Amino acid sequence: MTETQQTINNVIAKMIAYSDGNKHDIAHFLKVYTYARMIGEMENLTERKQEILEIAAVIHDIACPVCRVKYGNTNGSNQEKESPELVENFLKDVEIDDEMKERINYLVSHHHTYTNVDGLDYRILLEADFLVNADESEMSENAVETARERVFETNTGKKLLTSIYKLPAR
């Protein structure tokens, strides 16, 4: 196993523990992680960007437990507001450089913001999270079609969305 994969596995184990037995949260981040990893690899991210993406995908919903208690919901804007400090604390003992930690924090703190997307890692995180959220929230076919037009830019993400949700080919 590579050092990078060991780091990611450690982050996954840490996030499972952080989730405190919430099986829905654990299953959600594992699904988002799997899609993000696959899309990133198929879109040929650099090794460094891939590691950033995978760690961000694992911890993208780190603020959900806090938001449930503090706000009574997991609204995206509340998650983004609460994420920075949580991500910083979570990553303190993870053996990655500060620049990588900053980018991961940025991605997690913006993963419900669909404007000014500044990188393929960010785009892929949005796509992977949408793939899972559309299913979990039983989104209408029309909403999924709209997302295909407005959110999805990677070829891999578009193919997955079309296949999973049986959309007409474009």
Rank of each mutant, 00 (worst) to 15 (best):
N9I: 08
L30S: 09
E102N: 13
I62E: 02
L120G: 07
D135L: 12
E85Q: 14
T46V: 02
K81D: 11
R103F: 02
E85V: 12
P84Q: 08
S83E: 11
S137G: 02
N142V: 09
T154K: 13
V69G: 04
I59Y: 01
R170N: 08
Y33F: 15
G157I: 07
T156W: 07
Q6Y: 01
K31R: 15
R148Q: 13
F130V: 06
H111V: 06
T4N: 10
E3A: 10
N142I: 08
V66R: 07
G21C: 14
A13E: 15
V94E: 13
Q6P: 00
Y165S: 11
V87E: 02
F130A: 13
D98V: 15
L160F: 15
A147K: 01
S140V: 06
I62Q: 01
K158S: 08
H111N: 15
V132Y: 04
E136H: 09
P65Y: 04
E99P: 00
M139L: 09
L161H: 08
M100I: 12
R148K: 12
V117H: 00
T156Y: 07
E43Q: 14
V69A: 04
R37L: 12
I16A: 06
D93P: 00
S77M: 08
T34L: 05
G76Y: 03
D20G: 09
L131N: 07
G40M: 04
N73V: 05
E127F: 07
L45F: 03
N75L: 01
K31F: 14
N116W: 06
A169I: 11
D135C: 06
Y33Q: 14
R170C: 05
Y122D: 14
G76E: 00
G119C: 13
G76H: 01
D129Q: 11
Q50L: 15
C67Y: 02
M100Q: 12
A134C: 05
T7K: 03
K159R: 14
V66K: 10
G72C: 03
L45W: 04
Q50P: 00
Y18H: 15
I26R: 06
E127K: 05
D98T: 15
S140M: 09
D135W: 03
M15K: 05
N105G: 12
I104Y: 00
E51H: 06
E127A: 08
E153P: 00
M42G: 03
Y71P: 02
L86S: 09
P65A: 09
V87W: 01
L160G: 04
S137L: 10
D20C: 11
P84G: 12
D93I: 03
E138A: 12
N142E: 13
A36Q: 05
L86M: 10
K101C: 11
R37A: 13
R103G: 03
R150N: 12
Y165T: 10
G72H: 04
V11E: 01
I164S: 02
T46Y: 00
V117A: 03
Q79I: 04
Y106S: 10
L120N: 10
T154V: 12
L161A: 10
D118R: 14
T46K: 06
L120I: 15
D121V: 08
N116P: 05
